[in-house]
């Protein structure tokens, strides 16, 4: 009877221990996903809109038996909670810039030249101290040809078109501020991270009047990142300067006019060194 009693105890113990061992063993099962699904990069950067909080959060009701509801006491103190001091509303910048150089090759047009068709091309070399702030050196060259109205003024009205000043080049420097960044979806199929910047600075414009007046420059633009080292950059810049012309009202040299040029350029920018540290 004693051996039978021992066997019963062993069986009972086994029955009790078995589920515990099974559950423990199931937790420890290593999954070998040799054929793991490779996620599309566009999904990694999926735009998720922040959920809009309901206005009546504090008036949340707890259902009560009989269909009645009563205020939820736990939510009463929500109004006195301290706000977050630093709320990250969007993921980190895709295109790192801190301590990196940027080389921008560009081409474009002057939008507001009434008398000349101007093709703008050039390069810019910048250095970023932080993600937001940097300095940039600018070299821009302008190739101009007379518009129809200018040719007609010369040919049909004998108006001296050399009296019209147009820029031939600009050399200067800028302070650059990049306060805005974001991401934009193309046809709801892919995501393109981008930065929005402002720049302000000055330099010298050379003109077809053989003058080199000091020039003020204000610009803004966007950089659409292709990867962490390359981006498509769109820039709109205003340049303001004063220049004398060869032919004045009386045909003499010395008439001074104020000129403003609005440049729109598009190009590629390259960031270096690499961004392995990110």
């Amino acid at each position: 009877m004693g051996r039978v009693k021992n066997f019963k105890i062993i069986i009972l113990a086994a029955i009790l221990i078995l589920p515990a061992i099974r559950s423990f063993a199931e937790e420890e099962i290593p999954f070998e996903l040799n054929n793991a699904v490779q996620e599309d990069s566009s999904y990694e950067s999926t735009v998720v809109e922040p959920a809009k909080p309901k206005k009546d959060t504090q008036k949340a009701q707890v259902p009560q038996p009989g269909g009645k509801s009563a205020p939820q006491a736990d939510l009463a103190g929500l109004g006195s909670l301290a706000p977050f001091s630093d709320i990250a509303v969007i993921s980190k910048r895709f295109l790192p810039k801190t301590n990196r150089f940027e080389f921008f090759v560009n081409g474009g047009v002057i939008l507001n030249d009434a008398f000349f068709s101007d093709f703008v091309y050039g390069g810019r070399l910048g250095y970023y101290f932080t993600e937001k702030y940097g300095l940039e050196a600018i070299g821009t060259f302008i190739s101009s040809s007379s518009k129809t109205v200018t040719t007609e003024l010369q040919n049909e009205r004998n108006v001296a078109t050399q009296a019209l000043a147009t820029p031939t080049a600009y050399y200067g420097g800028d302070f650059k501020w990049v306060p805005v960044y974001g991401k934009i979806g193309w046809m709801n199929k892919s995501i393109i991270p981008f930065d929005f910047y402002f720049s302000v600075g000055g330099g010298i414009t050379t003109t077809n009047q053989n003058t080199s007046p000091p020039t003020a420059h204000i610009g803004a633009g966007q950089m659409f990142a292709l990867n962490k080292s390359m981006a498509v950059r769109l820039d709109v810049s205003w340049y303001g300067y004063q220049s004398t012309t060869k032919v004045g009202a009386t045909g003499a040299t010395g008439a001074t006019g104020t000129y403003s040029n609005l440049h729109a350029t598009l190009g590629m920018c390259f960031f270096f060194p690499g961004a392995e540290y990110r």
């Binding site: 990250a88 509303v89 969007i90 306060p179 960044y181 979806g185 193309w186 981008f194």
Partner: peptide, 12 residues
């Protein structure tokens, strides 16, 4: 193109 931007992380 449709997207969102952050102005110095203070809002979208």
């Amino acid at each position: 193109y449709y997207g969102k931007i952050s102005l110095t992380k203070q809002g979208v």
